[in-house]
Design a protein around this nucleic acid. Structure first.
Lengths: 196, 196
DNA sequence: GTTATTTCATACTAATTAGTATTTTTTATG
DNA sequence: CATAAAAAATACTAATTAGTATGAAATAAC
């Protein structure tokens, strides 16, 4: 990787960390360049504006991460119900990067940047649609293989699962402990088994 | 109401509107006093800091509103399952103040202010706990009256319902139309009927 | 190795921010 | 009505903000 490409990626990664923990609006460019040891000239060489950097974070950091961690595993899944549970459970309790008190990065950005920046909305919507489509697809496969009832509506379930995930992340932030996660997961398990 | 109390309430109401539509951090005091036609001196006479005003909004605007619109109706409920559905459906589709593109005021504030301001967290947590407790209570009553299965766990269901609500609000913001609400509500209906 | 282009460094600006200091007006109390 | 206290108006500050102008160093092309 070229040196220039490296500074660009350094900015994106560090900025993402700051934004995840502090929020987008309250993360200043001065703070980003201070923690990255990159000068302002370098920053504005790589990104025309702060928002352009924000969108780049979504497309170049969040999207690939999601592809790797959610999409691929779900596509390979043979047992949707078990795997949905494990996916959510992993994200809530085990993922080494995500923290209870900081919530879901995608959810945070959606909350904060929509509807004021359409570029953000579009980039985020693309990401979420990808995840949703994968879940729906997985449900259809489950229906074919007989693991899921035929009258289950994939899109409805996808929205239900993802909404629950985003929402419980908010509870986690509010209480700053994972006790709400544990209670939530139990009911998620009940719900998912109802799809059989 | 005294004139002073009136200006205080005017500030709280207008500030709440701005914060709901724009977010807390990006709503400046200058903007608040401009739209309220209240001077800075008056503002800082009533509130020591911006954050103190923020907490006052939660306690003096959001809390009473919630008491009136969610708590009371739920307490009076005879049929929890139907009423849960109607509560969420009303909030998503009919409430005249709430807008799809701006999400849920409580969810927004939780997302934005937690975990950086404990005063906000405490005030918001109190509010949410109240709602949760009401739902749990309603479920227990439903179990007694035979409308809800005995093996249903109230706390789990409460978290599940509220999480879903917060989460789908995020989808609404992202897409800026209520199509996701409609899909979500169908599955909510399925889920709630599974509690019978 | 010279030149051109990419990449980065430094110093700046204009606007906005929350909050303060001080004075003036309004309201309540005797 | 006189006085005290409450309420509000005005003018300010110091810090922070995103972004710019301009030049220097590094890298690539020939």
């Amino acid at each position: 990787m070229s040196k220039a490409a490296n500074t660009r990626l350094t900015i994106l990664h560090k900025a993402f960390e700051l934004i995840y923990t502090k929020g987008y609006q309250t993360t200043s460019i001065d703070e980003i360049i201070a923690t990255t040891q990159v000068t302002k000239g370098a920053f504005y060489y790589h990104f025309k504006t702060k928002d352009e950097m924000g969108v780049a974070i979504i497309e170049e950091i969040l999207k690939p991460t999601m592809q790797e961690h959610f999409i691929k595993p779900t596509e390979a899944s043979q047992n949707p119900i078990e795997d949905f549970y494990h996916m959510i459970s992993y994200l809530l309790l085990e993922d080494p990067f995500l923290q209870v008190k900081y919530g879901c990065p995608v959810g945070n950005l959606t909350q904060e940047m929509t509807p004021w920046n359409t570029k953000f909305s579009e980039a985020l919507a693309e990401l979420v649609d990808l995840w949703k489509a994968t879940i729906i697809n997985s449900i259809e496969k489950g229906k074919e293989s007989g693991l899921i009832r035929k009258d289950v509506v994939g899109e409805q379930v996808a929205f239900f699962i993802l909404s629950g995930y985003w929402g419980i992340r908010n509870f986690g932030k509010l209480q700053n402990d994972n006790s709400s996660y544990l209670v939530y997961l139990k009911e998620l398990n009940v719900y998912l088994n109802g799809l059989k």
